[in-house]
Structures are given as structure tokens and as C-alpha cells.
Write a protein that binds this DNA or RNA. Sequence first.
DNA 1: ATTATCTATAGATCTATAGATAATGC
DNA 2: ATTATCTATAGATCTATAGATAATGC
Lengths: 219, 219
Amino acid sequence: MISAMSQQPPSRGQRRKLRTRMALIGAAQEIFAERGDLEVSIQQITEAADVGFGTFYNYFSSKAELLDAAIGEALEAHAAWLENLLSDVDDPAEVFASSMRLTGRLVRTRPRIARVLMSGRGALLAAPYGHAPHARRDIEAAIAAGRFVTEDIEVALACTAGCLIASMQLCTVAPEASAEDITDQTVLNVLRMFGMEDTEARRIVTLPLPADEPPSAAI
Amino acid sequence: MISAMSQQPPSRGQRRKLRTRMALIGAAQEIFAERGDLEVSIQQITEAADVGFGTFYNYFSSKAELLDAAIGEALEAHAAWLENLLSDVDDPAEVFASSMRLTGRLVRTRPRIARVLMSGRGALLAAPYGHAPHARRDIEAAIAAGRFVTEDIEVALACTAGCLIASMQLCTVAPEASAEDITDQTVLNVLRMFGMEDTEARRIVTLPLPADEPPSAAI
DNA sequence: ATTATCTATAGATCTATAGATAATGC
DNA sequence: ATTATCTATAGATCTATAGATAATGC
């Protein structure tokens, strides 16, 4: 493939293209996070991204296409961020729980990316990319290690995503509530759902979390 | 209040107004269920509802207002349907579980209303109307009866809604899967989340359900 | 007579493209 | 010389309203 052959560092032009693309995606993420929907004109998007109107069509052929790219980018950045923060944790149950706890806290620490993850058309743990495959792998490893019990892993994954997104929405509508408390309570509920005994579940949701660095400069 | 004073049966004109209003709401529900969003012109809505274009503005001043009314109507109809079907069940844990099991099955039996409930801006169990207050009351009664254990009822309600909606979405993307199995597995997970012991939880999710009559003629 | 509904349309968008300008690569 | 970006605009929407028509109530 051409991309595998050209191992040159990206030229100035390629960097410029990437910057323009990310400006459009970033503007879309911001608008999507604020209004929950892309009910804006392409002109408003290009203005927010500070690029010429016609430039939009050099990158995307419709608003929906930009929206998909914006959600996909947020999911990938989120997965990479978690992967990086938790790379040295061995216990899959702990990786699973800490990933949820870190994600829930984003509602306060990085509200825009949190809103994209929440809305993201329910793709947070259902998509075949982003963090979803990691979460599935953690659940399977925890089952193999005898730490989780569940009958159907697809249903378990859906319930996990549903609990997390719903509790993030709860944090959003109650701005004065503690997102840490709500999130950790949610994770405790999920661990109980997986048949984990109470003392061990409580230990896992009170472990110290790694320092929360922004997932990417994009959003 | 005037509405309390006028106990006359509705006149022909009032019935006509209600019909027109419900035609608009029904068309919006249908379109919303199909596309997941109201990205349609008012003209297309009025055409689907088979009313004149200008009539729209006799009832709603914007598309968003119609959308809110459409979601609210679906939530109310759904709550009334469950209330009616389960009115003679005493055990709150059973009412709670059967409500979830009936709702999940709507994905197959009444896909349009199911999609409105799923999308409904996460309001299925978070709104101050519809089925949400009933579910909260059932959880509280089950706690009082010592059948459920949970630390925070708001979080518990959010997790319940999240699991149900996520599993309904799972049923939607896997049309060949058994919605009964997925839904009952989900309810089992939720009951486990509420600290219910396994044998009792399994008994409750295998109880016979009342016959599934449509919630209303509107959708 | 009153009230709801329909038809027609003005004015305000919004999209997609064509052609001009600016930046990059050799 | 090539490629990306910008500006300007034609054509196609879409919204909101005004005025005409049809249905209801007395």
C-alpha cells in the first residue's frame, strides 16, 4: 500500500490539511456537545472552525459525514487516553472499573468530550472501534479469571454502557452533585451486576485513579 | 379553572382539533422513530399527517415544540399501558420487573413506539412524568419491603433506564436475536444489581406476562 | 357568525459549485 | 506547477404569514 511505503515525515502541506480537518472536526464536536445535534448550517461550522466556507467540501460531502468523523475521533481519542493511563494495571476487573470511573469523571473535567461520548448515537461501547473492544476484552478476561459471572457478554456490555451513559446524563442534569460519587456508585452497581462480592467491589471502586490528563489537544 | 367547570362532552369541533393534533403528533413520532431525528421539513410532516401546511402553526410554533409533544405523548401512553396491564399485581419487585420486560418486548411488537422511547432524549425514566415516577415508587416500595438493596435511588433509577434502553438498542441492531431473551437477561442483571438473590430473580423474570395489547391507537 | 383549515407566496435561509486567490513543492 | 483555500453566487430549499375557503355552532 502507498501509505505503508511512504514513511516520509508529513510535509507542511499534509500538516496543514490535517490541521484544517481537525479544526472542522473540533468545531463539530463543540457544536454537537452544546446542542446535542448538528442543527447548524455548514457556514456556522466553517466560521467556528475559522476556515473558508467552500473548504468544507474538500473534506466532507455532508454534515452527517462530518458528524460521524467527529464522533469516531472522540471515541478513538478516549480509548487511547484510557489505554495510556491504565497500561500498567494487570487485573482486568480493575482496568474495567477504573475505565468507567475515569470516563464518568469527564462530565466535570472535560464536559465537551463527555457530551460527545454520551450522545455519540449510543456507540460508546457498541462500536467496533474505540474503547468498546477493550471493555469486551476486559470483561472476558475477568470472567476467565473467575472474577466476573455473567450469562451473555453482549447483554453485559450493553448494560455496562447503558449504566455509564445514564449516570453521566444524571451528572449533567445535576451540576451541583458529585460526579465522583455518582460514577463510583454506578460502577459499584455494575460490579454487583457481574456477581462480584460486596467487599471486593467496594475495594475496586475506591482505588486511587491515575492523574487525569486531557485525552487529546483536539477537544 | 375553566376546564374543571366545563364538563360537557367534547363537541365535534373539539374532536376535530384533537384529531388534527394527534395526526401531527403521530406523523412526528413515525418520522422520529424512522430517522431518529426531526430532520424533515414541516411540509413533509403535514403531508404525512394529511393536513394543510399552514395548519401546523395552529398547533405548534416550531418543530422542536412538536417533537417535545410527540415524545411526551409516547411516554404518557406507555405509562398508561403498563399501569393498566399490571394494575392487579401487588409485589412491587414484580411490577418493576414486568414493566421492564414488557417495555423491552416493544422493540419487536411495536417498533415505532419503542424507538421513540429509546431516543426520547433519555427521558424514559428521567422525566417527571410518564412511567418514571411509577418506577421510582416501585423501587422505593421494594426497598421498604426488603426485596431491593441500593445506596442511592437516583443512581439506581438511572442505571435501570440505561440498561433497558441499551438492551433495546441491542435488540434493534440484531434483528434476528430474541428480544425476549435479551430483555429478560437484562432484567436479571438489574435485579442482581439491586442485590436480589439469584433464584428469586430468576423466578421473577420468568413469570408469565399479561397479553400485549397496543398502548394506544395513536402510534 | 365564528373558528379551523387550506392555498399561495414573500423573504430568508442553506447547499453545492465555479472561479479566483494564496500557499506549497520542486 | 500543483494543490489547498477562499469568495461569490445560482438554485433550491424552508419557514412563517396573509388571505381565501370550508366546517361548525347557534
